[in-house]
Design a protein around this nucleic acid. Sequence first.
RNA 1: GGCUGCGUAGCAAAAUGGUUAUGCAGUGGCCUGCAAAGCCAUCUACGGCGGUUCGAUUCCGCCCGCAGCCUCCA
Length: 461
Amino acid sequence: MLKIYNTLTRTKEPFQPRVAGKVGMYVCGMTVYDYCHIGHARVMVVFDTVARYFRYLNYELTYVRNVTDIDDKIIKRAIENNEDYEKLTERFIEAMHEDERALAVLPPDIEPRATQSIEDIISMIKTLVAKDLAYVGTNGDVFYAVNQFKDYGRLSGKNMDDLQAGERVDIDLAKRNPMDFVLWKMAKTNEPAWDSPWGFGRPGWHIECSAMSTCCLGNHFDIHGGGMDLQFPHHENEIAQSEGATGEKFVNLWMHNGFVRIDDEKMSKSLGNFFTVREVLKQYQPEIIRFFILSSHYRSPLNYSDEQLNDAGSALTRLYTALRGTIVTSNELIDQDYKNRFEQAMNDDFNTPVALAVLFDLARDLNKAKSHEPQKIDSLAATLKILASLLGILQADPEAFLKGSGNNNADNKTIEQQILARLDAKTTKDWALADKIRNDLKEQGVILEDSPDGTTSWRRE
RNA sequence: GGCUGCGUAGCAAAAUGGUUAUGCAGUGGCCUGCAAAGCCAUCUACGGCGGUUCGAUUCCGCCCGCAGCCUCCA
């Protein structure tokens, strides 16, 4: 039985789909004005893994992840770059897709964009205004009247009075209540704008997600996800908008992933302490990044450091080494014990660290089978590869992974030649020469491994 | 100040009211010409103080420390 932690109730709940056998999941995606950093990668990988697991459990999943392609930051960046804002967003959407593919993140089923959903957004705002949940402020912007929505603050555990007691900066006098938030923002000269009953402008950030999610998945759907920081105010506002407009319950289950940190501090654009995915990819194989992300539970903080990435690389190397030389053919050989243990881990709120631990136990068994019980090799290897596929890892050719890491110099052909030379030296028992060749390669980051059958395999460290 | 959450061995990271997590690193052994890889064995734990309990790292309370949200942020 799959259990998932629900932010709304702060407990793990047995997962109950709204419609038997089907799941609708919406995840807040990127605002595309810059390259994705490792924090964004975490969202993509985490929810990709969730999506893979739902499909594995035979749910008919509709996975929606939006793209925010119009907002203040985009406009600002476009002006800085002296670039058309649509060119800018196209560029970064393409870059995002490249990063996704590198990280083995399967594309969502639907990827709606704010600028392509303007009609839906306007119609939702109209409804909110008609229901008196929204009003036009003194500056012409349309605001949501937070006081009109009784459950406001429930998701994030905020109390309205406490919030108002807090020191809020820049209270916008156009609003009736400082907590009210923008639904429709009037355009300044030369800003991108769409016509609306309130004049030319653009949607506020929160409304687009309400409009796009309900359009794609219906007024009421199963799962809504995103980073922790979106809990308040973004998701709180989404609930107020959607439930306010439709009069129906919006989402059953809210999932929030933890942050990536650097030196125990949140990685974020505003702090400037972020690493982009493509930056990290220059140093590490993409699968190492994915493994690193899955090596901690999705709700825990994840500290980013070279040491951690290197460890992830070593760990993956161990798994691929176990898989080396095996041939995976059929699914029917899958080992039930390991499958059960793996599913148990994943069923417990997607506990990927435990799921990975199962894979390591499996790898040890596989290594043992290689020397003692060859008849078990095929089944164990198949089990390892199939279970790993649910996490989006171990799908590459082991040799390709083991030889492919590193940013070093020696080309494969030279390495192979050196190995042949060393094998000659070994047959004449010229250990000095054999060891010299091995050491020279080692200095270039190439590790040699002699096998009992007289051949030598190699990998990059 | 209010509200969340966290504090596990050298590092990372899980589970659990009494029994091996797991990975990397260390130590000893097997294997090897020597290595590497692999296998076997093994050393480092549960922030502090109280309480509940036959027994707590695990439940409860307090304290200390850390992070996040309360403003755009995955």
